[in-house]
């Protein structure tokens, strides 16, 4: 079996050989199919490479992407997505855990460094801290779901609204950061208090980042 990374690399390299018109058509298909969540990555990248190689051969014979894949690319893409096998649940779970661990790891490590610079142990209230973690976890998953939806909705548009898309994305990210700030500043600390040393936070953050890295390696090896 050819590995996913090899397939993605092949796709990136070979795609450059498409002419402008075919490239535009193909990249719409690619974005639309790749942004479908919970589909088996290997099968997705395989069919994308197959279609690219098909288009490249057809291009040499003087055919256009529309000749090959028809005038209704979205319908074709939907049929392809329907035919793709679903991702194994364990892999989906690992991917979500990876994203959450990575994000929380960065956040906790950075606040940990601030604590170290302060040079004083920090008091943590378990109740409010867990609430903050929960808000961040839900927020980051919503944010990613929103980004996928945005990317998908823009494929196949006559005039891609990239500007509008960037603004929607900025707005959503802004709202998310605002929510986190609001929660961390205005929510009264509650729950049992716990004193942590200067380095504990940083260590927890690094452990989370290592966990995320481990999950990534596990997913790629599968």
């Amino acid at each position: 079996m050819v590995k996913i990374n090899t397939l993605i690399k092949q796709n990136n390299e070979r795609r450059k050989l498409l002419n402008e018109e075919n490239m535009a058509y193909y990249e719409n298909l690619l974005v639309y199919i790749r942004t479908s969540p919970f589909k088996d990555d290997q099968a997705t990248e395989e069919v994308l490479v197959e279609m690219l190689e098909h288009l490249l051969s057809a291009q040499q014979d003087g055919k256009t992407a529309e000749d090959v894949f028809g005038k209704a690319p979205k319908e074709l893409a939907d049929e392809i997505i329907a035919g793709l096998p679903n991702e194994k649940p364990a892999k989906t779970a690992a991917f979500m855990a990876e994203i959450i661990a990575q994000f929380l790891g960065v956040f906790i490590a950075i606040t940990g460094m601030v604590t170290i610079i302060d040079g004083e142990p920090k008091t943590i209230h378990i109740g409010s801290t867990l609430l903050l973690v929960a808000v961040q976890t839900v927020g980051i998953l919503l944010l990613i779901a929103f980004l996928l939806k945005l990317l998908k909705s823009d494929a196949f548009k006559q005039n891609p609204k990239s500007k509008k898309m960037i603004w929607s994305w900025a707005l959503a990210s802004g709202l998310f950061i605002l929510a986190v700030v609001v929660f961390s500043v205005w929510v009264e600390p509650f729950g049992p208090a716990m004193e942590v040393s200067e380095y504990t936070q940083l260590i927890v953050g690094v452990v989370l980042l290592l966990t995320a890295y481990g999950l990534k390696k596990w997913r790629e090896a599968k």
Binding site: A58, D67, F69, G70, E79, I80, G83, L84
Partner: peptide, 11 residues
């Protein structure tokens, strides 16, 4: 249409 073979192959 050439493209339609891909959904068929997946199925």
């Amino acid at each position: 249409s050439e493209g339609t073979i891909y959904p068929v192959l997946l199925r």
